[in-house]
Simulated scan of single mutants.
Amino acid sequence: MAEVSAEARIEAPAGKVWARLTDFPSYGEWNATHTSFPSGGPETLETGATFTENMKLMGFPAEVLWTVEELEADRALAIRGKGPMGVIVSTRYSLAADGEATTVRIEGEFTGAAVSLMAGKLKDSATAALTESLRKLAGLVA
């Protein structure tokens, strides 16, 4: 298993950050691992919704079938997906209002046999991608 996380304070209200975070057509503008949604994002963002995302991590392309596991508007979005080689990926975005700013935390987890072979490199690459994603997200909403 490999666990990763990143956190940033974004100088924008939680509602504005949430709107960008859940605007799937513009996902590629800030998400450093995202390459496309072959069938678009989820039709309706709700618990149980599914969607497919093409991603790139450590230079390798991957297709992940995501399911929304937790959804609380302006506060939390958790998704869990199945990727190649039996890898299970979990991502949780949490937002905490802090006056006119928002603290955004992204936590990720990778499990599966293939992960154990490259856990260290995966952690480094994924952490860098999360940090870059938060930087880009902040630039779009601030």
Rank of each mutant, 00 (worst) to 15 (best):
T102A: 07
L21A: 15
W66D: 02
A126T: 06
D74V: 14
L117Q: 08
S36Y: 03
T35H: 15
G15R: 10
G48I: 08
H34S: 15
E63A: 03
P38L: 04
A126Y: 10
A8D: 06
T91I: 11
I106Y: 04
L122T: 05
K123T: 13
T50Y: 07
A119Q: 04
A128W: 12
V4F: 06
K82G: 14
E29A: 11
L137K: 12
T103G: 06
L140V: 12
M58Q: 12
V104K: 04
A142V: 05
T131R: 15
R75C: 12
L45C: 13
S36V: 00
I10Q: 04
R9L: 15
D74S: 15
A2S: 14
E72D: 14
V87K: 09
A14P: 03
A128L: 14
G15S: 14
A96I: 00
N31A: 15
F24L: 04
I79K: 09
A126D: 09
V141K: 03
L134M: 12
A2Y: 04
A101P: 05
E69V: 10
F37D: 01
G112T: 03
T47L: 05
A96E: 12
F51C: 02
L71I: 11
S94L: 06
A6H: 00
T91H: 09
K16A: 08
G86C: 07
H34K: 13
L95C: 13
I88V: 13
D124F: 00
A129R: 03
T127I: 05
K121W: 02
N31Q: 14
A101C: 14
W66L: 07
G83L: 06
F110T: 03
V115A: 12
S5K: 14
P42I: 04
K121P: 01
A78W: 07
E43Q: 15
G108T: 02
E72G: 08
E63K: 01
M118Y: 02
R20P: 03
A49H: 05
V87S: 12
E7Q: 13
A2C: 07
P84D: 02
L95A: 09
P38Q: 02
R92I: 06
E63W: 02
L71H: 13
T111D: 14
G139S: 08
G40L: 01
L95Y: 11
K82I: 09
E63L: 00
L57Y: 00
M58N: 11
K136M: 11
M85S: 13
L71N: 08
S36A: 14
Y93I: 03
F51L: 01
E3H: 03
T47E: 15
E53D: 05
E63R: 01
G41E: 01
S90F: 01
L130W: 04
I88F: 10
M58D: 10
L71C: 12
V115P: 02
L95R: 12
S90K: 11
L57E: 10
G108L: 05
P38K: 04
A101M: 13
E70M: 05
F37N: 06
G83C: 09
T127N: 15
A119K: 11
E70P: 04
S26M: 00
E109W: 01
M55W: 05
A76D: 10
P42L: 06
E7Y: 00
T50P: 07
G59H: 03
R92Q: 13
E132L: 15
A32H: 02
V4R: 02
L45Y: 14
S90H: 09
T33F: 06
E7K: 10
Y93E: 05
A138P: 01
T67V: 13
V104D: 02
R80D: 07
S125R: 06
S90E: 14
G41S: 05
R20W: 05
